[in-house]
């Protein structure tokens, strides 16, 4: 639909407007601040609250997780799979802890739901891979950030 707009003489003359536009682009050309990150060399620092690759927090090599099943319950993408087991000292622990990272939507609900502060989301955002990976427990036990 054509919308009638009221223009002054200078707007209709157009050349002055072109000149103003040219000064803006020229200003950016010569004085503009470059905001590109030269990626492989310079990496962007995200906020510490960024939700990236998961890991299970461990103290002295023992995972905090007690296999309470709160995180698979809350997970909207249904991507966490836990099989619980019993240690010799009658403590419950996850025998299997798998995250299907392709289904994960990185909402962080699992981290919020966890009463033991076990499942965490790190700052790592480079998760490209050559295969469709399901993160297993060994992979998740790698302590990925200081968070």
């Amino acid at each position: 639909m054509l919308i009638k707009r009221e223009h002054g003489f200078l707007q209709r003359f157009y050349l002055v407007q072109i000149f103003i536009g040219l000064t803006i682009t020229m200003k950016n050309w010569f004085f503009g601040k470059n905001i590109t990150y030269q990626y492989p060399e310079v990496r962007r620092q995200y906020s510490p609250r960024y939700r990236g690759q998961h890991f299970i927090k461990a103290v002295n090599g023992v995972e905090n997780c007690t296999a309470c099943m709160l995180c698979p319950t809350v997970c909207p993408a249904d991507c966490i799979h836990i099989e619980a087991g019993e240690r010799d000292d009658k403590e419950k622990y996850p025998v299997k802890f798998e995250i299907d990272i392709l289904r994960c939507c990185f909402c962080g609900f699992c981290e919020e739901a966890c009463p033991k502060d076990a499942i965490k989301l790190s700052n790592i955002y480079e998760m490209a891979d050559y295969e469709r990976r399901v993160y297993d427990k060994d992979f998740l036990m790698i302590q990925r950030s200081q968070k």
């Binding site: 050309w29 503009g32 590109t36």
Partner: peptide
């Protein structure tokens, strides 16, 4: 190059 400089890119 010039396009990207004008758009604050590299």
């Amino acid at each position: 190059r010039i396009c990207s400089w004008m758009q604050n890119r590299t």
